[in-house]
Amino acid sequence: MAEADQPPKAAASVAPEEIKAVPVRRPGRLIAGVLIVIVAAALIRSVATNPRFGWGTVGEYLFSPVVLDGLVKTIELTVISMVVGILIGVVLAVMRLSPNPIVVAASGFYIWLFRGTPVLVQLLFWNFIAALYPVVALGIPFGPALIEFNANNLITPFVAALLGLGLNEGAYMSEIVRAGLLSVDEGQEEAAKALGMRRMQTMRRIILPQAMRVIIPPTGNETIGMLKTTSLVSVLAYTELLYAVQLIYAANYKQIPLLIVASIWYLVLTTILSIAQYFIERHYGRGTARAVPPTLLMRIWQSFSTWRHTTPPAIEQRHGL
């Protein structure tokens, strides 16, 4: 016995034997697992057997032209509003770090105003802007107008929605971008300066690309948030996804199945966005030693594959290595 307990000689020429120990019993895990499975089964049974869910109606309307048209409009609103928001956010963030105090104050005022009021109020405000400025004119400030538009024709519900969502998003994005810019080591800027690069070149080529690593994850969140916030535009009678299903159930009174239709599409879109975010993060993570962690779905897939004793998919590639 005493001999067996002794540590092995340092230069053992034989490969050490793999440890095969009896695992610790974990009753807590087992109980939790069983409970969750029971609750899940009850939920699934109720969802499947309650006729008022109207799964038939869900299937009937899931791909109906009105719903698909609303879906396309929701995607349009999300994409354009996010682009507007990101552009405004970058400009505001760079302004916030400017040496000119008036520029800094202007950026601060914008953020204060647009972050400080509800986006629903802003949407309604833009919708009714014609009451405030019936005519929009392009011209020389304090001088003659060159072109005039009737605000009622110019600000359609779509334009009001883009203004409301995009300008509001800009205020949030600016804080995200600013945090990203501040996360880049000062030495990077100094090195670029010492090489003779200008401030804007340094920003575009050196600082922003490295800030992206910090900017992307919250921007993914914002995009998913934006996708859902577009449903507020239904109050402007613009037929995005939610308003489209509202129009349908206003006629056939099948509210629940149609809200399920809308929810399914929102879930599909947010899932796609999460996957896209993973790949964008990986792209901007190049050059860093740390790998982007696999997504939840990939982790589940991986644990199933190892459980089946097959080779797990190679998802922990260290990008750039």
Partner: peptide, 25 residues
């Protein structure tokens, strides 16, 4: 700024903490 940058072009600098651009090869 342009002229300062022009002056710096002719002066190479090496830093204590290298300051290589991390996102570039």
């Amino acid at each position: 700024e342009r002229d300062v940058a022009g002056e710096r072009e002719q002066i190479g600098m090496v830093f204590q903490r290298f300051n290589l651009f991390g996102h570039m090869t």
